[in-house]
Design a binder for these strands. Structure first.
Lengths: 199, 199
DNA sequence: TTTCATAAGCGATTGCCGTTCGATATTGAC
DNA sequence: GTCAATATCGAACGGCAATCGCTTATGAAA
């Protein structure tokens, strides 16, 4: 019997990634994605059950790569404050503002999803755990496990908010926001070495 | 000459509000909204230039009413902690979780908006100013104007994140989140009377 | 009261796009 | 070499926002 060729699947993913990051989930069309993958629109559905599944197949590896890259960057910083600042800056400014990234894809895809699409939150939880671990690595023992989990969940919610705003071309004044969040986290961690904020 | 009748406009807004809150922006159709408003789909466009404009015309008065109601509730609380807790609880749990509310409308409508739709951020800024004022009212002088503005912006981003999650039927564990945020804000305000979090 | 320009109202149509269908061509297994 | 499974593809479907042209109601001017 005939068999699915990986090369076709790869071509579709590559084309989809380009279209989604350039045009967003909604304006990108299956027709255009298929054309650039040198196949027919209907054939895309042999490899992916729906446009939403295709988008998630593009988004997931992208986000994981970005988070792992961020993890390495945080580890390279020396002080607790520098680590936290790098974490927040990556999560709330660098990753969402990446022109070739997929935060817009995510927001558009998920907000058009219907309840029966049953988006599974594994990726979200994986990311939250990673962020919580980075927080603990950064500030050490002064942060309880439960506190770091709460902070990580809060940070991910802010990330979602930033992503949504970005979709509206509403600037979030990224570096200022990152600075505020860094101070909040360090204050929560009870870090007394925090310099007085230069207001 | 013939004149637009306010009653028709009102009927369309009422019908749209019901459909949007029950089905969300995307699944609600102009046809169904028009039918329940006893008019033709094409006639809706005499009163509102697009589906997005209609949604914003529904959303804006709803949000303003909710924020003003929240402001009164915060004012009624006695202590700084109670005020902050009430503010955060309203913003991150009660308003987004309101079944008859429009947070889902907002997220879906805005994430499908295109750049040329030029969403104007007046409503967002009005809300941020209100939240900042509530924060200053709650904790008093210990919070500089710039700090309260930053915190308000952060809170609104979390609100957007919560709204996005709600659209995915991902529970945000609202009360737990609200408690975390309350502690963060009070810690930032340098409130030493904050009881040790029961971890 | 009559006339008339204007705009509300509406059924039909358009255009777009995700998805499905039916037919055909290709490939791996026996 | 034969056959069955299935990748591939053009055509068609269905849903929906938005537009078009025509009809009709209405307020103002005469």
């Amino acid at each position: 019997m005939r068999v699915k060729r990986d090369s076709v699947r790869e071509a579709i993913l590559t084309s989809a990634s380009l279209h989604f990051s350039a045009e967003g989930y909604l304006r990108a069309t299956i027709g255009a994605i298929a054309r650039d993958a040198r196949t027919a629109a209907s054939n895309v559905y042999v490899y992916f059950p729906s446009k939403l599944d295709l988008a998630l197949a593009v988004f997931e590896p992208w986000l994981k790569k970005e988070i792992l890259r961020l993890e390495r960057a945080v580890r390279r910083e020396k002080t607790a404050m520098a680590k936290v600042r790098r974490l927040v800056d990556g999560l709330l400014r660098r990753i969402p503002e990446d022109e070739a990234g997929h935060t817009t894809t995510l927001v558009q895809a998920l907000s058009t999803a219907r309840p029966n699409d049953r988006y599974n939150p594994d990726l979200l939880h994986w990311t939250e755990r990673k962020v919580a671990a980075m927080l603990r690595h950064a500030v050490g023992e002064t942060l309880s496990e439960r506190e770091s989990d709460s902070l990580a969940r809060g940070l991910m919610l802010v990330f979602d908010g930033v992503a949504l705003r970005r979709n509206l071309s509403i600037a979030t004044v990224g570096s200022d926001l990152a600075e505020t969040m860094t101070r909040l986290i360090l204050a929560q961690a009870g870090d007394a070495s925090l310099p007085a904020a230069a207001e």
